[in-house]
């Protein structure tokens, strides 16, 4: 390396100004007459005139002047011998400096003896790596249950999160997935290219088809659904009757509901639905009846001994039987109330 620097150094044009280099040593390579081909040891460097404009060549040592004669710069003769010795000194200083720097291998060899220090370095590096791994694991454990973790586990879709921006395309006809060529001859959808053909159906053809169908299918929508065998109500067009077979699997013509009641159920906007209310009222009424019947029974139970006492004052203590109403008796009372 030092030999190369000894032989030739290329210095960019601007950096030349920062170095104290005698202008006489700067050979203007643009002058083809001065330098055409320079030989330094086994290196041959060819210089084109364009490159020479960018760089100046600083030649040092014996190769300054291949002819050995003096050069003339700006009309003054150049003393190459003095300038060469000056440059020799500088290069020599540089060489000494380079040699004085210890190489990496030498450094390693010199410190090879301190095995303890190396061991400490390696151990500390290992400890740092382990510590970082433990810290990162702690961080992941702290994120359990987070949205990011839910997305990672597939329980939440990443494109449905509030923080994410949804994909926004222009419209279904103009987006990255669908592209129609300008001349409308092809369309590209999901990476596949399809050839397009224009629709040729005209209004006249549509009308022709409509007329054909109206001739072929003469039909009236049935508005009455009757079970097979039922008589047709008076004033009903038989063409509008749909006969439902007895064994129709899904539909029945019989309903317990009144038509107007069903309609009002559909149009009910708020409040308790009809059947729920009706059932609730019926249940409540039943409960009330049960309660009233119980109270009546209780009154009867209280009254019976007094009446018996007043009616039969001479009966003995063994003849007094506690009225024990049988279940049938109770049911009878309920039946009489009309609730069962």
């Amino acid at each position: 390396m030092s030999s190369i620097s000894n032989a030739l150094s290329f210095i960019p044009f601007q950096s030349v100004n920062h170095h104290v280099i005698p202008p006489s040593l700067l050979l203007r390579a643009g002058n083809a007459a001065n330098i055409e081909v320079l030989w330094f040891r086994k290196c041959r460097l060819s210089w084109s005139s364009q490159k020479a404009c960018v760089f100046r060549v600083k030649a040092v040592g014996d190769s300054i002047n291949s002819t050995g004669s003096e050069q003339v710069e700006d009309g003054a003769p150049v003393d190459f011998a003095a300038k060469a010795s000056d440059s020799d000194r500088r290069v020599g200083a540089l060489r000494v400096m380079i040699i004085s720097l210890p190489s990496f291998v030498a450094l390693v060899k010199r410190n090879a003896g301190s095995k303890y220090a190396m061991g400490i370095y390696i151990a500390s590096t290992f400890v740092v790596i382990v510590a970082r791994l433990i810290l990162s694991r702690c961080k992941i454990q702290n994120k359990h249950g987070s949205v990011a973790e839910l997305v990672r586990r597939g329980q939440l879709r990443s494109d449905r999160r509030g923080i994410s921006n949804p994909l926004k395309y222009e419209d279904p006809f103009n987006n990255p997935q669908v592209k129609i060529e300008k001349n409308k001859s092809k369309v590209e959808m999901c990476g596949k290219v399809y050839r397009l053909a224009p629709v040729t159906l005209t209004q006249e053809e549509q009308l022709i088809h409509q007329r054909r169908r109206s001739r072929a299918y003469q039909w009236k929508r049935p508005t009455f659904f009757l079970k097979e065998g039922d008589p047709v109500p008076p004033g009903v067009d038989p063409d509008t009757v749909r006969w439902i077979p007895d064994n129709h699997p899904f539909a029945s013509t019989a309903t317990e509901l009144d038509e107007s009641l069903a309609q009002s159920n559909v149009f009910q906007k708020d409040g308790v639905p009809f059947r729920v209310r009706a059932e609730h009222e019926a249940l409540q009424k039943k409960l009330e009846n049960i309660q009233t019947s119980k109270t009546e029974m209780g009154i009867k139970q209280n009254n019976v001994p007094e009446r018996e006492r007043s009616a039969e004052p001479s009966t003995g203590p063994y003849d007094k039987v506690e009225p024990n109403p049988s279940p049938d008796h109770g049911n009878h009372n309920l039946d009489s109330s009309g609730n069962r």
Partner: peptide, 22 residues
């Protein structure tokens, strides 16, 4: 089973109720 004795009125009522939904 859908009671068909109302004919098609039931679904017409439903659509009308949706139309008048406040």
């Amino acid at each position: 089973k859908l009671p068909l004795s109302f004919g098609s009125k039931a679904i017409i009522w439903i659509v009308d109720a949706l139309r008048s939904r406040d």
